[in-house]
C-alpha cells in the first residue's frame, strides 16, 4: 500500500528559479526511499514541503489516498501523527532547557488520546521513556539528563526515539548522519535499519552520501537542480541505463 504520494510538486523561493521542479514520487508501506543530491539540489526543500513547514506552489501531496490540499483539521492531525522527522543537527533538534524525557514525550503528549500503540506497552510515562531509550540502545538513566550532557550520536538516538515514539507510518530523515563523526554515522545507520525491521515504518532518507543511502534504502531517487533525474531499485544501481549524473555520483564512492 502506498503511504504517501507526491505529484508534480513545485516550490520556489524566488520567481526565476524553482527549488523543487515538478517532482513526483511515492513511498510504499515499510519501504525506505533514498533521495540523493548535492547541497542546494532541492532535496531538503522537498522534505520541508512534505512536513508542512513550507507551503507548496504547485502539485499535490496525497496521504492515505487523501490529498492534503483539501484535508480538514482531523485529517491534518492524522497526517502529522503519521509523519515524523529527524533532522541533521541533533543539538538544534532538542530543546537545551528540557530534560531528555520531556523532549522524548512531546509527540506522545500531543497525540496520546488518538494513539493505539502496537509495539509499546507501559503503565507509566517513566516506563515509556525507558522503553524508548532502550530501543535506541541508550542507558535508561539518560532520561533525566539535559541534552548538553550527551554526545552528538546519543542526541541523534534521542531524536530518533522521539520520532518512533508514536509509531508513525513515515519518518523523513533529513541528513541524519551528516553532522556526526564517522563511528556514530555507521551506528546510526544500523540502528535505523534495525528499527525499520522491528517497527515496520517507511523512511524517506535524504542524504548527499550515496553509499549511506545504498546501505539503508531499497529504492533510490536522484535529484539535481530541483529536478528528479533518476529513480531505481537498489539492485539496478550499476545498470547502464542509469542517468549520467547518477553514474557520476556512483563514481565518487
Amino acid at each position: 500500500m502506498t503511504v504517501i504520494e507526491i505529484n508534480h510538486l513545485k516550490k520556489s523561493y524566488n520567481p526565476d528559479k524553482l527549488a523543487v521542479n515538478d517532482v513526483s514520487l511515492s513511498i510504499e508501506e515499510g519501504e525506505s526511499l533514498g533521495l540523493v543530491g548535492e547541497s542546494g539540489c532541492g532535496k531538503s526543500t522537498l522534505a520541508r514541503c512534505l512536513l508542512g513547514v513550507e507551503r507548496v506552489d504547485g502539485g499535490s501531496i496525497t496521504f492515505n489516498e487523501k490529498p492534503l490540499a483539501n484535508a480538514n483539521r482531523k485529517d491534518l492531525r492524522d497526517y502529522r501523527r503519521n509523519v515524523q522527522t529527524v533532522f541533521q543537527n541533533p543539538t538544534a533538534s532538542l530543546n537545551p532547557k528540557l530534560k531528555i524525557k520531556d523532549s522524548l514525550l512531546d509527540p506522545y503528549l500531543q497525540f496520546q488520546n488518538e494513539l493505539q500503540l502496537e509495539h509499546f506497552h507501559f503503565t507509566s510515562k517513566q516506563a515509556f521513556v525507558e522503553q524508548l531509550l532502550e530501543i535506541v540502545e541508550l542507558p535508561k538513566e539518560l532520561g533525566d539528563r539535559y541534552p548538553h550532557e550527551l554526545s552528538g550520536g546519543q542526541k541523534q538516538r534521542v531524536t530518533i526515539a522521539r520520532a518512533i515514539s508514536i509509531e508513525p507510518k513515515l519518518i523523513v530523515l533529513d541528513e541524519p548522519t551528516a553532522s556526526l563523526d564517522v563511528l556514530s554515522q555507521g551506528a546510526i545507520l544500523e540502528l535505523l535499519a534495525t528499527l525499520q525491521k522491528s517497527l515496520g515504518m517507511s523512511y524517506l532518507f535524504i542524504s548527499h552520501d550515496l553509499a549511506a543511502v545504498y546501505q539503508l534504502c531499497q529504492r533510490i531517487a536522484v535529484m539535481k537542480d530541483g529536478e528528479l533525474l533518476d529513480m531505481f531499485q537498489k539492485e539496478d544501481i550499476y545498470n547502464s541505463r542509469r542517468h549520467e549524473y547518477t553514474k557520476e555520483l556512483i563514481g565518487i564512492f
Partner: peptide, 10 residues
Amino acid sequence: DYITIARING
C-alpha cells in the same frame, strides 16, 4: 529545529 519539530507535530 526543535521548534520546527514541535510545529510539525502540530
